[in-house]
Design a protein around this nucleic acid. Structure first.
Length: 429
DNA sequence: TCTGGGGTCCTAGGACCC
DNA sequence: TCTGGGGTCCTAGGACCC
């Protein structure tokens, strides 16, 4: 076997080569369901709901895939394509639990792990050779230990970048290991469809096809400048990806860097469209409570509250409002959501989906800073206002002390200090 | 085919400020 | 009375991922 870890770049600069693993569980949801009901093994199984329900396939067994069933396909379509399939409801708690087991196994191989989703992870294995041996050996050990500890199959892709690791794990499926030797990246990618590049979806694929680009190799031949002109920042990143580089965006970040949540949301699709305002507002209340609970669990306060509304014909709008003070209270979230809803719902039009979304987070610690910040901002604003008045009307027109007193009074009026024990007694003599 | 639910990131335009 | 350039914040929508 050829190991090629001491490449030299031009000007004799040593190049440090990363070894990244991408570990992807095979048909994860289906495999977990099989652990709970072994009779499902070897059969066409669809996870995500019952055959007549509104909804899509979350995961399909390899047997079901033979009939063309794949994830994100409407359940009713899957039922037509594969009538003999067994339809199973999803169990998110089971998947979370198994995902934690997977994480624990991975933790014995590298301290730098990043769960990219519930069923896949990146490991930075750079410099672990003394402990785990060369990449292929480490991967096989990992593969075996994963099976032994979780009874689940996974596939492992190994490469010098996250991108290469990710693409190679997909090629290794099912239940395989694939190592792309350093230096062979472009050769590996060239024959693959452009769609295999993470980030290239339906739309981008169509654009590229219109340019006569089918394979990653075609893409790599294209001029970088041309791609940038046509697709902007994304085009430039794409040129790098065609060479196997983690160009731009999330791929360019260190494995295991702390990824704090940026938003929390819940939504609900009705089994039948409804225009019943009582039902709609009850749903919004429930969704607001779910979002509020998760904010409190994570100790986040959100400033931006967003409503999502989908009509019968699938037209979807979002309407957001940003609060002056962040919140994690159900009542405040619901108040905003209800007002957005009443302002934007075309009365009487049947609704298919409602959603509540919270973002622009500040943590508890930031809260204190924010208060300080807003106090500072008041000073700044007052001073800036005074300056503008002076510019306009001359030096003697503004007294600084008066401005600050006004601002102070306003503040204390807005947020009166509650004295413990006094308020209730005075209300109930 | 008749389209879930949870996310991330990017773009573009308008408001507002300096 | 025709008009800048940059920065930041906010909103809306869309592509993409699992």
């Amino acid at each position: 076997m050829l190991y090629n870890f001491s490449c030299m770049a031009a000007a004799d600069q040593p190049v440090f080569i990363c070894t990244i693993f991408h570990v992807d569980m095979d048909a994860f949801f289906v495999s977990v369901e099989e652990l709970f009901d072994p009779s499902l093994k070897g059969k066409a199984v669809v996870v995500g709901g019952q055959r007549h329900e509104r909804g899509v396939v979350s995961a399909a067994s390899y047997e079901a895939r033979k009939f063309g069933v794949h994830s994100a396909m409407p359940l009713r379509t899957a039922a037509k394509m594969c009538p003999q399939a067994i339809f199973v409801d999803g169990h998110p708690e089971r998947y979370r639990e198994c995902s934690e087991q997977v994480y624990r196994v991975l933790g014995t191989f590298s301290p730098q792990i990043e769960m990219a989703s519930i069923d896949e992870a990146y490991l930075d294995m750079t410099g672990t050779e003394r402990l785990h041996g060369p990449p292929l050996k480490a991967a096989h050990t990992l593969h075996q230990r994963m099976k032994a500890e979780t009874r689940l199959n996974c596939s492992v892709g190994i490469g010098t970048s996250r991108l290469i690791a990710k693409v190679s794990s997909a090629q290794a499926k099912p239940n395989g290991v694939l190592w792309i030797v350093p230096g062979e990246e472009a050769k590996f990618l060239a024959p693959l469809d452009v769609r295999e590049i993470p980030g290239v979806g339906k739309v981008m694929e169509k654009h590229l096809h219109e340019l006569g680009i089918q394979k990653v190799g075609d893409l790599a031949k294209l001029d970088e400048g041309e791609l940038e002109d046509r697709f902007g920042k994304w085009g430039l990143a794409l040129a790098g990806k065609a060479r196997g580089e983690d160009a731009g965006g999330w791929f360019d970040t260190e494995v295991g860097a702390d990824l704090a949540a940026k938003s929390i949301s819940h939504e609900h699709t009705y089994n039948e469209d409804t225009a019943d305002i009582a039902q709609l507002e009850a749903t919004l209340m429930r969704l607001s409570e779910m979002v509020g609970r998760r904010l409190r669990e994570a100790n986040f306060h959100a400033r931006t509250i967003q409503l999502k509304l989908r009509y019968k014909d699938f037209t979807t709008i979002t309407r957001a409002h940003t609060l002056p003070n962040p919140t994690q209270l159900d009542t405040e979230i619901f108040e905003q959501i209800r007002s957005l809803f009443r302002k934007n719902w075309q009365k009487g039009a049947p609704i298919r989906l409602l959603g509540v979304h919270a973002s622009s987070f500040t943590s508890q610690a930031d809260q204190i800073d924010l208060l300080d910040g807003s106090r500072q901002q008041r000073w700044k604003d007052a001073l800036a206002a005074a300056d503008r008045l002076r510019d306009k009307f001359g030096e003697s027109s503004v007294g600084l002390a008066a401005g600050m007193r006004g601002s102070f009074r306003e503040r204390t009026h807005e947020n009166p200090v509650a004295l413990p024990g006094k308020k209730k007694k005075s209300n109930h003599p």
